[in-house]
């Protein structure tokens, strides 16, 4: 079921490495689709390189990484570097209840656009992604 509208925010949703707890990832993907976004669902078993490739191929506005393992701690710096090397301007958003307060600061420092932990309301996630999508589109329009 695809209820997205033309010009909808394009969001890549995926997980990194061997993190196999997919419940959160699927729940968020469904929620974003219901909010009218175009979700490209990459699912499990991605490397940072694969995410970057998909983000470019799919012209994603936002890369949403779901995490239920600690692998993000090691993978996020690699992902941010790879994006910057590939001149990919998609915004990176990370979600998962394993992300702690001290990680959050480091991740934002690294250039992660937003972090959603336990208790994030879906309307807040949707609003943040719409803003990030609109910001990227405006940047593209300005060239």
């Amino acid at each position: 079921m695809n209820s997205s509208t033309p010009g909808a925010v394009r969001v890549l949703v995926g997980m990194l490495g061997l993190d196999q707890h997919e419940v959160g990832s699927l729940a968020v993907a469904g929620m974003l689709r219901d909010a009218g976004m175009e979700v490209i669902y990459l699912g499990r078993f991605n490397t940072p390189a694969a995410i970057v490739r998909a983000a470019i191929d799919e012209d994603a506005d936002v890369i949403g990484i779901s995490t239920h393992s600690w692998e993000y701690i090691e993978y996020l710096p690699e992902l941010m570097n790879a994006l910057s090397k590939a001149h990919c301007d998609a915004a990176v958003v990370l979600g998962g209840s394993v992300i702690t307060a001290s990680d959050r600061d480091q991740l934002l420092e690294m250039g992660v656009a937003a972090i959603f932990g336990a208790g994030s309301a879906s309307q807040d996630i949707v609003a943040a992604l719409r803003t990030l999508g609109a910001t990227r589109r405006a940047g593209l329009a300005r060239g």
Binding site: D19, Q20, T47, I73
Partner: peptide, 22 residues
């Protein structure tokens, strides 16, 4: 751990950040 669940050895490239953590 996650690599063993997936029947992958610790030296598999996807295992690098998951060896022994879960």
């Amino acid at each position: 751990d996650a690599p063993t669940q997936a029947l992958l050895d610790p030296d598999h490239p996807l295992a690098v950040n998951a060896v022994g953590t879960q």
